[in-house]
């Protein structure tokens, strides 16, 4: 497999195709998160607790995706000099979240279904999660770069600001929902 495909599949996949594959992936990640009790409170925070309905796990991913999409799309509107399509930003940012499936899948293994605090199992899961989060950020960066055709400092600064703001907003929304469910 072309290694470029792993960090920038958007050279070949965008639009409705990426949205469909991304949505199927989102359902799968949500389902495995639900059966393993893996919570994603934004992109950079993971927690483990089998305490909720499927819809809550699904909402965590949807909220995180819609928030980062909104910030990146607005950045594109403000900074890009080209006409870009909403569907490309929607689809590629959703597809970029696929690596987040790694930690929930690992938790399907008997070793990682329950573990004590500061055990090697815990560090392994967190290590795998950090790797998948880093991979997701690289994919999101390439999704933004290709969908909105931004370059250089405009691309890097607007992406960094979007990621930070979307993380804050996502956590606020998810926390407010937690108290209502």
């Amino acid at each position: 497999m072309d290694s470029n495909y792993l960090i920038n599949p958007f050279i070949r996949i965008a639009g409705y195709k990426s949205l469909l594959i991304g949505f199927a992936g989102l359902l799968l990640v949500s389902f495995i998160s639900y059966i393993t009790g893996t919570h994603f409170n934004g992109l950079l925070f993971v927690g483990f607790a089998k305490d909720s309905k499927f819809v809550y796990y699904f909402l965590e991913h949807i909220i995180s995706w819609i928030t980062i999409f909104t910030f990146l799309f607005l950045s594109g509107i403000i900074l890009s000099k080209t006409k870009f399509r909403l569907i490309d930003v929607l689809g590629t940012t959703l597809l970029a979240r696929l690596p987040l499936i790694i930690a929930p899948i690992l938790r399907l293994l008997p070793y990682f279904q329950s573990f004590v605090f500061q055990s090697w199992e815990m560090y392994f899961i967190y290590g795998a999660y950090l790797l998948s989060a880093f991979w997701t950020i690289v994919l999101l960066f390439n999704a933004f770069k290709i969908s909105c055709n931004l370059k250089n400092e405009r691309l890097i600064i607007s992406f960094a600001v979007s990621i930070i703001l979307s993380e804050i907003i996502t956590r606020l929304i998810i926390n407010s929902i937690t108290f209502k469910i």
Binding site: F10, I11, R12, S18, T82, F84, R85, I146
Partner: peptide, 10 residues
């Protein structure tokens, strides 16, 4: 070209 639409547009 077997590329995505935004790649070609860029």
């Amino acid at each position: 070209m077997k590329l995505s639409y935004p790649t070609v547009r860029n």
